[in-house]
Amino acid sequence: MMGRILPIASAVVADSLRRKVVYVVLVFAALLAFAIPSLPDYGLGVQSAVFREVALALAYVTALVVTLSLAANRVPAEVERRTVYNVVAKGVSRPEYLVGTWLGVFMVAGGAMVAFTIIEQAVGYITYGEIMWQLWQGAFAVWLEMGVVAALAVAVSAITGPVVVVTASLAALFIGHSRSTLLGGEGALELSPFYPSLDAFNVVNPVAHGSGVPLVYLVSMAAVFVGMAGLSLIVGSILFSRRDL
């Protein structure tokens, strides 16, 4: 199975490397990272914390743009251009194709996160003389959340076009981060365990203002990632398997 998933993933990575969008987003984000220390409302003593918080937000936006630009269009474009015919006719199952596509997007998002975090580290060190290792934890959380977003986007893209995929993904992000707002009442809080919350990936406070994220929390975050991404890919695979190409 992996013998068929990995070539598809590596094709997605190769395709994304030739796309300008990934580089443009990364360069733009790097320029903004260099501009963070010049923000006017920096308070004395909290500069590095604010830097980390803004850097995390930038990393999040960067990863989101990269993820959605790749995940939303890949499957619809391959179906429309019929490049998927050669793949499916070779005995690749549709779930394998979908998972391979997702894995490729996830790997590119990971590469973008690594590149951007290195830049953040460099800027942080140059500006504050501090190695901000917590930013790697933040990047890891953002990467996992993007894995969930990519899985959802790929699943939705199995049956519809890029515009709907982006809209659905942004709606899911909004819902995923609005549990406390949407389930405000006490009765509604009982629904809380069933709510598709993405709050598990929100590690801004410990990364920016605390002393980092405990290992056990990182592990539990990875478990949430596996569950949510896996569920999305299963649903996407079922939908894609029922579709005529």
Binding site: Y85, G91, S93
Partner: peptide, 20 residues
């Protein structure tokens, strides 16, 4: 899928990823 692994198929208009 397993039933197609010993098959070669050329579609009517062969499309490929253009960057390859």
């Amino acid at each position: 899928p397993a039933g197609r692994r010993d098959v070669g198929f050329m579609p009517e208009q062969p499309y490929f990823p253009q960057h390859l």
